[in-house]
Structure formats: structure tokens, C-alpha cells
């Protein structure tokens, strides 16, 4: 009796994962349906106006700018983070002396645990102004947002990649060295192919984090509904739009906000699913 009950409750809990995910889609869709009805899909994602109508009623809402802001800031983040994180992972596994490995490794792991809002604060007060001095433009900009996001995911990506690289058996590396391979060739031809799955996994997870990140970006992207004509101009991303304007939104605008959340969730869901399907296939 207890046996059956226990099994049933654990089954229910597992099922809950499905229920929650389906629930997120369902609830977002339910609240977004007015906006979906008014603006359609294609029209919504290609419109760059976000204007509330007279007396807070109705209005024209389009998601193009926050969608582009999300994609561009994530793109910049990944372009910046991937080489540096790979460098750190290779450094930690193949270059650093034993004495350096442990402290640097732990530092990286701890940094991966720091809440994202801290990265945002640092970007707002220190990194953004520095970028402005270097490149001109605005302190809060697409560039600042992308780089802060990148810096935020670096430790996370580096730590997972390092763990993956560390699973490469020593003899496998030695047999490449024993054929006269250089250190770089061992990394390129033996370690990366062997640890491929974990390394790509680290990138995909980081991509997911960057896409959905709110706080590291909210401080530094500027939060204005404008298409950035250069990297150093401010713009807005979907999470930041939600964080800044959700609570004060009127009826149709709120519905459009839910629509934006649905689109963001869709982007993240599709990215992760595709990545899982192609790269992380038979991972348990």
C-alpha cells in the first residue's frame, strides 16, 4: 500500500515537470491572446513601434527591437565568452602548474556562483563608463550589455568545459604526445574531440543563460525602445522590457508583454531543444 503510494507520488512529481512546462506555455498564451489576435505573429515580430494609445487604452506594440536586442546582446556575449572560456579551460587543464590549478579553478567556480545582479551593478558603475571612455557613445549600450553578459557566463562555461576536458584519459593524451604531437595538437586532435559533448554542452547552457538573463543586462543596456545604429548605442532586450515595464503596463500592453515572454520562452526552448537533439543526443 505504502509502496504503491510512494511510487505514485514520485510519478506525480515527475509528471509535474511536464505540467509546469505546459502550464507556462498555456498561461503565457492565455494572457497574450489579445495581442496575438490584434497583431498576429509575423506583424508583431517585424514591428518596431511600442506605443500606448490615448488614455492608456489600446496602442501599437511590436517586438522587433527587444527581439533584436536579445539576439544581438547574446551574440556579442558568446563571441566574447567562447574564446576566453576555452582559453581558461585549456589553461586550467593543460598549461597551469599543479599549484595554480586548484586556486584558479576554485576561483572560477565561485565566480560562476555570483548572482547576476552583481555583474549588472559592476557594469553600471565601472565597466560601462570605461567602455564609454574607450569607444565613445553611451555608457549603457548594446556593447556594454553584450560584454557584461559574456563576462557573466565565462566562469560557468570555463568550469564545465574544464570538467569535460578532465575526463580525457591521460594515456590517450600520452599516445598523441608519443607520436610527436605538440601540446596544441593534442588539445585540438585528442582532447577537444574526446570532450566535444561536454564542451558544446557548456556553450549551449551558457547561451541559454545569456538569452534569458535579466539583471546583468537591465542595468547596462539602456532600456530605451530604439534601434541601435551602432554598438555603443542603448537599446532594449525582452527580459529588460519585462523587468522595466511589466508592472505598470495597461491592458493591451500587458498582453503584449505576455506575448514577448512567450516569444522569449519559445526562443530559449527551441535553442535548447535543437542543441540537445543535435549535439547532446544520447546524453543521460
Amino acid at each position: 500500500m505504502f509502496n504503491r503510494l510512494f511510487r505514485l507520488s514520485s510519478y506525480t512529481a515527475a509528471l509535474l515537470v511536464l505540467v509546469i512546462l505546459a502550464g507556462i506555455f498555456g498561461v503565457l498564451y492565455y494572457y497574450a491572446r489579445d495581442a496575438i489576435h490584434d497583431f498576429g505573429f509575423w506583424h508583431f515580430i517585424t514591428t518596431s513601434t511600442w506605443e500606448v494609445g490615448e488614455d492608456d487604452e489600446g496602442g501599437v506594440f511590436g517586438g522587433l527591437i527587444p527581439i533584436l536586442g536579445t539576439l544581438f546582446s547574446t551574440g556579442i556575449a558568446m563571441l566574447f565568452a567562447v574564446p576566453i572560456a576555452m582559453g581558461i579551460a585549456v589553461f586550467l587543464t593543460e598549461i597551469a602548474t599543479e599549484k595554480l590549478k586548484a586556486p584558479v579553478g576554485i576561483a572560477i567556480e565561485l565566480l560562476a556562483a555570483i548572482p547576476s545582479i552583481i555583474y549588472g551593478m559592476w557594469g553600471l558603475f565601472y565597466f560601462g563608463p570605461m567602455l564609454q571612455r574607450l569607444f565613445g557613445g553611451q555608457s549603457n549600450s548594446l556593447l556594454t550589455a553584450g560584454l557584461v553578459l559574456g563576462i557573466m557566463v565565462i566562469p560557468f562555461m570555463a568550469a564545465i568545459s574544464r570538467d569535460a576536458i578532465n575526463t580525457t584519459p591521460a594515456v590517450l593524451k600520452e599516445s598523441a604526445y608519443a607520436m610527436g604531437a605538440t601540446r596544441f595538437e593534442v588539445v585540438k586532435d585528442v582532447i577537444f574531440p574526446y570532450a566535444k559533448r561536454g564542451i558544446i554542452g557548456s556553450m549551449v547552457l551558457s547561451l541559454g543563460r545569456a538569452l534569458g538573463e535579466t539583471m546583468a543586462v537591465a542595468f547596462v543596456i539602456g532600456g530605451v525602445f530604439r534601434f541601435p545604429h551602432s554598438l555603443t548605442q542603448p537599446t532594449i532586450s525582452i527580459p529588460v522590457l519585462l523587468a522595466n515595464n511589466f508592472a505598470e503596463a495597461g491592458d493591451l500592453e500587458l498582453s503584449a508583454m505576455f506575448y514577448m515572454a512567450l516569444i522569449l520562452f519559445g526562443i530559449s526552448f527551441i535553442t535548447i531543444t535543437i542543441a540537445k537533439f543535435f549535439f547532446l543526443k544520447d546524453q543521460k
Binding site: 507556462i24 541559454g208 534569458g212 519585462l242 515572454a261 520562452f265 530559449s268 535548447i272
Partner: peptide
């Protein structure tokens, strides 16, 4: 795993 990568703000909206 997909849920783990869900944007946290979306969960707030939900």
C-alpha cells in the same frame, strides 16, 4: 533540462 534553462523572468511572468 529545458526547464533549467528557462529564462527566470519568464517564470516570474508565468
Amino acid at each position: 533540462d529545458v526547464m533549467m534553462s528557462a529564462p527566470s523572468i519568464v517564470i516570474g511572468v508565468f
